[in-house]
């Protein structure tokens, strides 16, 4: 295997590891905000690494650019989704405190 193939393999394996951690965080963490942390950070790091590995394997500048667009959109979408869900949970949580 060439150096880029080894590098791609390394990136994909590392990325898969982050996905595992994300799932574990989602299942183990005690409250919804901590779970949000696990999802947004671990999964997007995982996706970034897998995307970098796949871009190396495609050996095409256009595909690499396309994968970069996918990655950036995924980052923005996931971060905004995380913010919206957190804000929603916060608003509902405060409502619950007001009415014991």
């Amino acid at each position: 295997m060439s150096i880029s193939a080894w590098l791609a393999a390394l990136l994909i394996v590392a990325g898969t590891g982050f996905f595992f951690a994300g799932t574990m965080g989602l299942l183990r963490f005690p409250d919804v905000f901590s779970r949000l942390h696990a999802l947004t950070k671990a999964d997007n790091t995982g996706l970034g690494l897998v995307a970098a590995g796949v871009a190396l394997l495609h050996q095409s500048w256009r595909h690499a650019a396309l994968i970069t667009v996918i990655w950036l959109l995924a980052l923005a979408a996931s971060s905004i989704a995380c913010h919206l869900v957190a804000r929603d949970a916060l608003a509902r949580g405060e409502q619950r405190e007001e009415k014991p």
């Binding site: 989602l26 779970r35 999964d43 995982g46 994968i67 995924a74 989704a81 869900v85």
Partner: peptide, 20 residues
């Protein structure tokens, strides 16, 4: 909100699977 997190996770994972 917890349930929607699970859906978010499946979305990101699906993208990674499709890339692979």
């Amino acid at each position: 909100a917890d349930r929607i997190l699970s859906i978010q996770l499946s979305g990101t994972t699906t993208v990674a699977i499709l890339l692979l």
